[in-house]
Design a protein around this nucleic acid. Structure first.
Lengths: 218, 218
DNA sequence: CCCCACATTTAGGTGTAACTAACTTTTCTT
DNA sequence: AAGAAAAGTTAGTTACACCTAAATGTGGGG
């Protein structure tokens, strides 16, 4: 099946929103920065191709075939991100945009070569799982920093954001994959969590804490 | 100026055909595998943008701005080819197709990083010159193997083809950049040139000899 | 110097994917 | 449960870049 870049982007977006559940027209429109009306049109086309299950006004889910393609695109994206970081020295806040454009244009050959060169990595620079060639997703922590208790010490395992400003902020405060965080204070009124990284103190908004995934213990 | 991938391809094609002289509609159509009528349409658009000088029925040349873009695209293409070969172990017959797709989708950042990593190379795996960032083309040999005399020994400096079958053929017979060839026979009736590479003998058609550029002496 | 073959352009049409505006369906609020 | 707000869809356009078929321009040979 030879899909347009646009179709691939839609499938990826549906996968990332839905994660099994159904995605709404407006969520997809938001993520892809297009008009909701355009989404409706595309969903019909994808449904024709049996890549999604689409019910008017009710949302959309991926079929098995659609999920497979979404995972392939995601594999490309995350392998490229990893490659840019490991082989070309990109920072984790720079890799997303570059990968977003390249993911649709690399060959199977290229995919295989960089995967091999990197030692078939399972996680990208943000800790997101890289789908394997046969379409399995390595396990990830779903434990959010936002849900950790005062006094606990946790290890950063994943940062579920591609926003470069957020990523740069975290990097500058020593919050990177594998970093140990001690939660020193939860202020539920100001929706702020105070953590210590090494010996420095950082205040984090609740929004940021929702996208930082951790493992209990250090 | 933000051009479509297609426009970039047209500018590159015009540059490569014309090399200063004007390119014809049909030459461009042939190179890009599109209908001549489509070329006419695109040339009008490019002329509007002041990227080409176009006179109906007479052909087209690049303006200064158009040439600049063509050189940038060519720089991307050839840097990527070089990178694929040097960093990822591609063979010279595999690099073109991959580069053709990637060249339009890499950032300035990516260009700079691979150029630096490669030590700002001046020639790609085929010996073609890589335009510098400020738009200069490193010098190349224009001496064709087809024009060399019986008994001469020459060094291969450039192979002006991206056709993978041709490139594979040459590779398999030891004809690579830097190889020393001794012209042992010219048969002007069968349009064939016989050369010796190391100790093995190879018969080359005149067509092939026209795209192999050499330097006199070994 | 005229005519013909070939090159090129014009005209009209296709498919993709976006947009806006207007309409319909669903969901929330009271 | 009614009506308003939000979400989603339909209809009609636009832009891009391709195509085919028909018309037109150009240059060389008789």
């Amino acid at each position: 099946m030879n899909l347009s870049q646009n179709m691939e982007d839609y499938l990826k977006a549906i996968f990332q929103i839905g994660h099994g559940e159904s995605a709404s027209t407006s969520e997809i429109a938001e993520r892809l920065s297009v008009n909701p009306a355009s989404v409706t049109g595309m969903l019909k086309k994808l449904a024709e191709l049996k890549l999604v299950e689409y019910v008017s006004y009710r949302g959309v889910t991926l079929t098995h075939a659609g999920r497979k393609i979404a995972l392939e695109v995601l594999r490309h994206h995350r392998l490229i991100e990893t490659y840019l970081a490991e082989a070309l020295g990109y920072e984790w806040d720079q890799v997303h945009d570059e990968a977003e454009r390249l993911e649709h244009h690399i060959s199977e050959e290229f995919e295989d070569r960089i995967a091999k060169m990197l030692g078939d990595p399972l996680y990208d620079p943000h800790g997101d799982p890289i789908p394997t060639k046969d379409g399995r997703l390595p396990p990830v922590s779903r434990e959010r920093l936002a849900d950790a208790n005062e006094g606990e010490t946790v290890t950063v395992r994943r940062v579920g954001s591609e926003d470069s400003t957020t990523l740069r902020f975290l990097k500058e405060h020593g919050i990177r994959l594998g970093a140990a965080l001690r939660i020193t204070k939860r202020d539920d009124r100001t929706h702020t969590i105070t953590v210590h990284v090494q010996r420095t103190r950082v205040d984090l908004s609740n929004d940021v804490c929702k996208i930082i995934f951790v493992e209990r213990g250090s």
